[in-house]
């Protein structure tokens, strides 16, 4: 907690903070890039999950669909991490001290793992891919929800601001 506080104070006085808060249009446009990357994750996960459910792309094997779209998710996550760091740098007292932000990070790890699990082996039953697809969709929706909720959640008592 003290380390996180010191980090936030350091970030607030860093050149990165000065750079992203130097122009009023920069933070909204970084958010736009963040949203575009979320869209890349959403459509890629949707294609993988709908293939698993046997709804679309049924003319291609599941592993081909996963191999095509999982790298897009991973690439988009890199963009999301970079833009996320810039957004935190613009307002260090915000996300870091709200539980929902850390819940979001946990959900991202879980959602990525569950979505990637579609690519392992050829399950004998139809049930496993269906359950993975539903879990993946719910987890990614949870990520979006938690992300939006950072703006509404209360910060930890006595936290940096």
């Amino acid at each position: 907690m003290i380390a996180l506080h010191d980090f936030a104070v350091w970030l607030a006085h860093s050149p990165l903070n000065a750079a992203v808060t130097g122009h009023s249009w920069l933070v909204p446009e970084i958010q736009v890039v963040h949203i575009v990357a979320i869209a890349a994750v959403v459509v890629s996960a949707a294609l993988i999950n709908l293939r698993a459910l046997g709804v679309i792309e049924t003319d291609r094997p599941q592993r081909v669909v996963v191999r095509a779209w999982l790298p897009v998710i991973l690439g988009a996550l890199v963009v999301l991490a970079l833009t996320g760091v810039l957004l935190i740098a613009s307002e260090p007292g915000r996300a870091l001290f709200r539980t929902v932000f850390w819940v979001k990070l946990g959900l991202i790890v879980a959602a990525t793992a569950v979505t990637a699990a579609h690519g392992f082996g050829a399950p004998r039953s139809r049930l496993v891919p269906c359950l993975l697809a539903i879990a993946s969709a719910l987890l990614w929706m949870g990520v979006i929800f938690a992300g939006r909720w950072i703006a509404y959640a209360d910060g930890w008592p006595g936290a940096f601001s």
């Binding site: 949203i35 575009v36 979320i38 869209a39 890349a40 994750v41 959403v42 459509v43 890629s44 949707a46 929706m141 979006i144 929800f145 992300g147 939006r148 909720w149 703006a151 509404y152």
Partner: peptide, 25 residues
């Protein structure tokens, strides 16, 4: 409500990212 707007906004983000992602593709 203190939370309803935020919940609807979150669902709005889910819808719009699906539109944006599929159209951009």
């Amino acid at each position: 409500s203190t939370w309803l707007f935020g919940v609807i906004e979150a669902v709005h983000v889910m819808g719009l990212t699906l539109v944006l992602g599929s159209i951009a593709l």
